[in-house]
């Protein structure tokens, strides 16, 4: 319930308390309803803007090729066809790419969290010398375009034997994700009150225990947000993955580069197919992100 509504109610209450008069009471109620309706309309408008493009990709992915050449284009799935999608799915390496991509995405999550969460905690809790320089260092690594980094990185990987493995892509993606993970988690830890942690320590928790039992649950929404970014970034990253692998590619590296030369229908099929796993991941993580919504822990 918004605070605005509560204020409307509270201000209306004194008039209503002495003698219940329904006829007088309807005005604030109507205002409330109107506000609710407006809120819903605003939400619908935003939803339309966000969802219609995704609908259009889906529509195009399941339209016949000739339907995409018509003008004006149709907005309803009147010429449903799975032809392009099935051709796309049966092309060499899509399944293997899917496996590699999921593997790389999850491993990137693990690596970047193991390394990033402690660092984020350090930034939030400790005022150490080099605090700002450290953050700049992180951003510095992210500010250089990947294309410039990937060739020397490929040489490095070739000479150490990790080239053309999911590990190579994982390492690159972890490096790309770390700045995001660290800065985001630090913002979250900043919001978790120090008192909660200290209380846990008073009641006999070890530092690690206090961290995992008290701080981590409170920081879960932020960590969930960071995990979404990390996974999605890894899932969609194509420039680096293309250079670092040859026969064990991730899905975007396998299909996106070839898709740009394919007929439009295939580009939509591929584009839509790539969205699905990321949408599923966001759906899972959303629970944790909205974990504390409305709860009154403090």
């Amino acid at each position: 319930m918004t605070s605005a509504e509560t204020s409307a109610e509270t201000s209306a209450r004194p008039a209503a308390v002495p003698r219940p008069q329904p006829a007088v009471d309807t005005a604030p109620l109507r205002a409330l309803r109107r506000r609710r309706a407006l809120l819903q309309v605003a939400c619908w408008v935003v939803t339309a803007f966000m969802v219609v493009p995704v609908y259009l990709i889906a529509l195009a992915a399941f339209s016949s090729r000739s339907a995409l050449n018509e003008f004006p284009l149709r907005f309803l799935p009147t010429s449903f066809s799975t032809e392009t999608m099935s051709t796309f799915l049966s092309s060499t390496g899509v399944l293997a790419g899917l496996i590699n991509s999921i593997m790389v995405g999850l491993l990137t999550l693990v690596v970047s969290f193991l390394i990033g969460v402690p660092a984020g905690y350090a930034i939030a809790r400790f005022a150490f010398r080099g605090h700002d320089q450290y953050q700049l260092f992180l951003l510095f690594t992210r500010a250089l375009p990947i294309v410039v980094l990937s060739v020397p990185l490929a040489q490095l990987f070739l000479s150490t034997g990790v080239y053309d493995t999911p590990l190579a892509v994982t390492l690159l993606h972890s490096a790309l994700a770390l700045p995001t993970t660290i800065l985001l988690t630090s913002a979250v830890f900043l919001a978790v009150p120090v008192d909660a942690e200290e209380a846990a320590r008073i009641f006999g928790c070890t530092p690690v225990g206090a961290f995992t039992r008290v701080v981590l649950p409170l920081a879960l929404p932020g960590i969930a947000a960071a995990s979404i970014f990390t996974f999605v970034m890894s899932w969609n990253e194509v420039l680096g993955a293309t250079i670092l692998t040859l026969n064990q590619r991730t899905l975007p590296a396998q299909v996106l580069s070839s898709l740009s030369d394919s007929p439009l229908a295939f580009r939509f099929a591929g584009g839509f197919f790539l969205i699905i796993p990321a949408i599923v991941f966001i759906a899972v993580m959303r629970r944790y992100l909205l974990n504390m919504w409305g709860t009154t822990i403090r």
Binding site: M1, T2, R36, L39, Q40, C43, V46, T47, M50, V51, P53, V54, L56, I57, I228, F229, V232, W235, N236, V238, P252, L256, L259, S260, R267, F268, G270, G271, F272, L274, I275, A278, I279, F281, I282, A283, R286, L290, W293, G294
Partner: peptide
């Protein structure tokens, strides 16, 4: 917190899942 806010949030977060190549395409 409009009715269905959790669903709205999910729908509004979806573009995050779309790669920039696919976004350009659409």
């Amino acid at each position: 917190r409009p009715k269905g806010h959790a669903l709205y949030f999910y729908l509004w977060a979806i573009p995050l899942a779309v790669s920039d190549l696919a976004a350009g395409l659409v």
